[in-house]
Design a protein around this nucleic acid. Sequence first.
DNA 1: GGTCAACCTTTGTCCTGACATACGTCGCCC
DNA 2: GGGCGACGTATGTCAGGACAAAGGTTGACC
Lengths: 257, 257
Amino acid sequence: MVASPSARVAPADDLAAELSLDRDSPVPLHQQVAVQLEAMIVAERLPPGSRLTNEVELADRLGISRPTVRTAIGYLVDRGLLVRKRGVGTQVVRAQLNRSLELTSLHDDLLHAGRRPTTTVLQLAETPADAEVAAALAVAPGAPVTVLRRLRSAEGRPVALMTNHLPVGLLPLRAEDLEAHGLYELLRAAGVRIRIADQSVGAAAATAAQARQLGERAGAALLTMTRTAYDDEGRPVEHGSHLYRSAYRFSTTLVSR
Amino acid sequence: MVASPSARVAPADDLAAELSLDRDSPVPLHQQVAVQLEAMIVAERLPPGSRLTNEVELADRLGISRPTVRTAIGYLVDRGLLVRKRGVGTQVVRAQLNRSLELTSLHDDLLHAGRRPTTTVLQLAETPADAEVAAALAVAPGAPVTVLRRLRSAEGRPVALMTNHLPVGLLPLRAEDLEAHGLYELLRAAGVRIRIADQSVGAAAATAAQARQLGERAGAALLTMTRTAYDDEGRPVEHGSHLYRSAYRFSTTLVSR
DNA sequence: GGTCAACCTTTGTCCTGACATACGTCGCCC
DNA sequence: GGGCGACGTATGTCAGGACAAAGGTTGACC
């Protein structure tokens, strides 16, 4: 292969030519444009600071209407990848950011980071809901809920101690599935679409029991996270209370509107 | 079979009648609709689970076009307040969530919670940037940056120890302003529009010095947060490294798409 | 009496077209 | 030579219409 001399700018002389659309696809045109643009941005095919072809011409060249182009671009603007300026144009944001997911799962995070997560199921049972769980899952106090306690490790070292509560009967949970897959993965596979989550992060000192399970010393600083996740319609799906060793950090990219 | 839990709540008899629009206002029509709908939702004038008037009729009754109604509703759907279902309608999400801001400032958080934040400026100077700060602010290592260290308290009790680095000359900072206002507030007032931030949260044990300033014991669990904020165009504006006492928690509402 | 197809409702997608408004630049005028 | 207004450019807002697809309901048929 020839060394890449053309790699430097002259970015997208012809942006439209690099986008391909399939009108017969079930995926909407604006989404096709958005995902391709996003790919070009993360690959720096569209480098930070570069300007996109203007909306009118882009629409023209792609054979689609301006509103369609606008919704595609608007989606990326909302996610902080692009900036629009009236009278100027649309540019790729300068910073290279985390681009971390809005709603993350520890299992996926570890996988994505190239580490190999393993899970030990410590408990999988039904118990009466205490006040906190009952409030979170919108059931009566004392009503039965599924409780799940897991120890998550990576490369054989403990990372997190996770306690989750779920409505009974939401999905059949088996320990063997939980040891091979993340909870959110199983939920998705069962057709549960998680859409919103309330999350709270804090710090706490490890109790003796917690320290033993996580391989820390009693009193060590731990990261605590509680999360209640809701589906499409706002029904509570899962309430979790997790403890992470302090080596682990939560990273997110926030966008304000 | 007994009535399902999805019992219909009586919807606003006439949603359109409760919305008022001002065509002469500089604020866009879709935004006028969105903020009024949002207000009705948080006030439970539109209770969780209730259905909105369908888009076509709503547009008709308001004397605006359907796309305008759709962008207003779409905004609220993106924020997790509403759910759309084809063939069914648009409903208010069932859960009452935190609705916390995407990008929060500790000062504003405390104010909003009805507490009275006070700030002591410990340091305000220029220093050469170390490697971490230089990378975050996109300046050369050793280049001068503004460094700012503050102790934030509420009701006289220390809450956080905050170290921030900013590009020199971004805005004139005076200790007296910093003791009366939050940093983000001052940035906004200086015309800096913060739009994106990369944030990472973890836990750590307090050093002796940190413990002394925060009124904790050495080794106490602290919440650590580092954040780099960017403006409109992705230029780094601020890099902060904060320590919070474990009584403080970060709460957010996450929405996935 | 139960099943399933037809139909209605409502959102999803996309189009064309128009005017408003902010930003940058260029050239005129002082 | 410098300030400033006119103009071009690109996004922002909005209208109105058309058809597609999905969910729910209803009614016919077996």
